[in-house]
Computed example of a mutant assay.
Amino acid sequence: MTAITLFGHSGVRIDRIAIDPGIFTNPAIMEGAEHVLLTHSHPDHCNLDIIHNLPVYGPKEAIEQLTDCDTHEVYPGDELELDGHHIRVVGGYHAVVHPSLNRPTNLGYLIDGRILHPGDEFPDIAMHSLNDIEILFLPVAAPWLKVSETVEFAHSILPRLSLPIHDAILSAEGKALVDSILTATKVPGYVRPDLLTAIEL
């Protein structure tokens, strides 16, 4: 049995693995966490005030900010075994916000071959063999994306469940609008679960 819990923005927990505990994420994500995965270095994905004294895996730009953790630099293609889960690292670079802005390394994490957290990009499906994904953490609002791109990515993956992430920049009305669009465009298995409530798989 695997417990998936959303803690706001891109912060999620897979059992005792915390992914992207950022400044817009409820700090409760760290309660009971034993490992941390970071997709990239931006503060909305890496809150230095709440990540302490744990093994942390991620790209160099992210982990080098942490001074009191057991840090591990990882790359696309790497494979990890954490908390009884097999994790394959995918990804490349952060999606383009504007050509004048730097694109840090962005890593996605494929967990047990069936759960995908892409961070701040839509990774190439063929390149990373992203097949048979059951649970997709789906970015829905960001300076780097359009809703049409979100819809197309979800339809290319065809997960059983699509769970929204990267949405702290939206008001309640904005979230409702995005939800209505993703539902109308038949994003596979789209549902917005309550935060801090575990989904058992």
Rank of each mutant, 00 (worst) to 15 (best):
His85Leu: 06
Ile51Arg: 01
Pro118Gly: 01
Ile19Leu: 12
Thr2Met: 13
Glu149Val: 06
Leu54Gln: 06
His9Gly: 00
Arg192Trp: 02
Pro159Gln: 07
Asp194Glu: 14
Met127Glu: 13
Val151Glu: 02
His9Ser: 12
Ser100Glu: 15
Thr197Arg: 13
Ser171Tyr: 02
Asp194Leu: 12
Val97Asp: 05
Ala33Val: 06
Asp20Asn: 15
Leu66Phe: 06
Leu195Tyr: 10
Ser129Arg: 14
Met30Lys: 01
Val187His: 03
Pro159Ser: 08
His98Val: 03
Asp49Asn: 15
Pro59Ile: 04
Asn131Glu: 12
Thr5Gln: 00
Leu116His: 05
Val178Tyr: 01
Ile4Lys: 00
Met1Ala: 14
Tyr93Phe: 14
Leu116Gln: 04
Ile51Tyr: 01
Tyr75Met: 13
Ala142Tyr: 08
Ile125Gly: 05
Phe24Arg: 12
Glu61Phe: 09
Tyr75Asn: 15
Glu81Val: 13
Asp124His: 11
Leu195Asp: 07
Val178Ala: 05
Val96Lys: 11
His155Met: 10
Ile135Gly: 02
Gly113Leu: 05
Ile181Asp: 04
Pro43Val: 12
Val90Asp: 03
His166Asn: 13
Pro55Ala: 08
Gly92His: 09
Ala176Ile: 06
Pro104Gln: 10
Leu177Asn: 08
Val96Glu: 14
Thr39His: 07
Leu170Arg: 04
Ile135Val: 15
Ile50Pro: 00
Val89Lys: 02
Asn102Lys: 15
Gly84Thr: 05
His94Ala: 07
Leu145Cys: 08
Ala141Glu: 04
Asp167Pro: 01
Thr150Tyr: 02
Ile181Glu: 06
His117Ser: 13
Asp44Thr: 15
Ile115Ala: 01
Ile133Asp: 06
Ile169Lys: 06
Lys175Val: 09
Thr183Asn: 11
Ile23Glu: 11
Ala176Asn: 11
Pro118Val: 04
Leu6Ser: 09
Ile50Glu: 00
Asp179Cys: 07
Ile115Glu: 00
Thr5Phe: 00
Asp15His: 01
Leu138Ser: 03
Leu80Gly: 10
His117Ile: 14
Met127Tyr: 10
Leu80Ala: 11
Leu195Arg: 10
Ile50Arg: 00
Asp78Trp: 06
Glu73Gly: 10
Gly77Ala: 09
His42Arg: 14
Glu31Asp: 13
Ala198Gly: 06
Asp68Gln: 08
Ile181Thr: 12
Asp83Phe: 04
Phe153Ser: 05
His72Asp: 09
Leu82Lys: 07
Ala33Asn: 04
Asn26Asp: 11
Leu170Ala: 06
Ala141Ser: 15
Gly22Glu: 03
Leu101Tyr: 14
Gly119Thr: 07
Ala62Asn: 03
Arg160Gly: 12
Thr105Asn: 08
Gly91Arg: 00
Ile199Tyr: 01
